[in-house]
Amino acid sequence: AAVVLAAMQGVDPETKAYLHTTIIFYHEKDGVEHHGFLRRSCADVPSWNLDALRPVVDVAIAQSHNKPQADRSQPGELDGPQVSPGELNGPQVYFNPVEVFPAFRPGFTEFKPANITPELYIKRPQLLFSMDPVEREKRKSYAESEVLLFETVLQHNEHDNIVKYHGCIVVDGRVTGLVLEKLPEMLLMRCLDTTRPLNVDDIIAQVQSALDHLHTKLHVRDKDGDKDAAMVHVPFCHNDINMQNIMITKNGDREVAKLVDFDSCVREGLPL
C-alpha cells in the first residue's frame, strides 16, 4: 500500500479558481523504496515538468522522514495509523447501488453504453463523500432530481443554451449516469485565457435567454410521456448559476454558452 506524504492544491492567485492537486506518495516493493506523485489538473493549465516538481517532492519526503515517530499521527502518513475503509489509501468500500443511484423508471430513455461517441459525455455521481450516510442520501436525491428533470422537462423543452440530454445509462435497474452532449470548455477556464477576446454581452444574453426559458416557458410531461395539461408554462429555477455551471462551445466563429448541472433545479416555490 502507498502512503501519502503530502498533498497540495494549487489555485489561481487572482480568481482563486481551482487549478490542480498534487499528491506525493511513498511505497515499498520488494524491499525497495519508491516515491512518486499523482497530479490532477484542469484543462488548459500548463503542466509542471518533473524537474520543476522534484524540489517540492524532495522537501516533502525529507520532512516526512525527519518527523519524530510520535508526530506521525495523521492517517495515511508514513508510519502513521492504519487508514479506515474508504479513506485515501484505505481499503475499498462497496456501496449498495440502491443507496447511491436513482431507480430507472418506466418511460425514461435508456442509452446503451455501446452507442457512446466522442461527442457525448457521461455525467456520473461523485461518490467521494458517500461514506457518510447523510451525504450519501443527499447525493442520491440530487441525482434523482436531475434525471427526473431531464426526462420529464428538459428533454421536451430544448434550448440552444442548455446542454442537450440524450438518455441515461442503466445498470441493474439503476441510473448510473446521464448522457449529455460533450462541451469543450468551462466558462471559468475560458476566462483564464484573456488573450482570446470574449464577447461578454453576447454570453450574458445567451445565459439570460436560457434562464428566461427555464423561468417562463417549460411544460412537464406526465408518466406516459404526454404533455401534462395542468403543467404548462411551469417556472423552474436553476439555483446554481456560476462560472463552473456554464460551458462554452463554438458555432462557427461565435462562442456559445450552455447551462449545465441541473441537480439544484426545482419548480419555482418548491424548497431546495
Binding site: 466558462l187 476566462c191 470574449l198 450574458i204 423561468h215 429555477c237 448559476i241 456554464i246
Partner: peptide, 25 residues
Amino acid sequence: AAESCLRNDERGLQLVEEELRKAFP
C-alpha cells in the same frame, strides 16, 4: 420563497457578469 428562487438565478448571473467584465474589461 418563489421570488427568492428566481432572484437566486438573477444574482448568480449578475456575479458571473461581474467576473466576465473583470476578465474582459
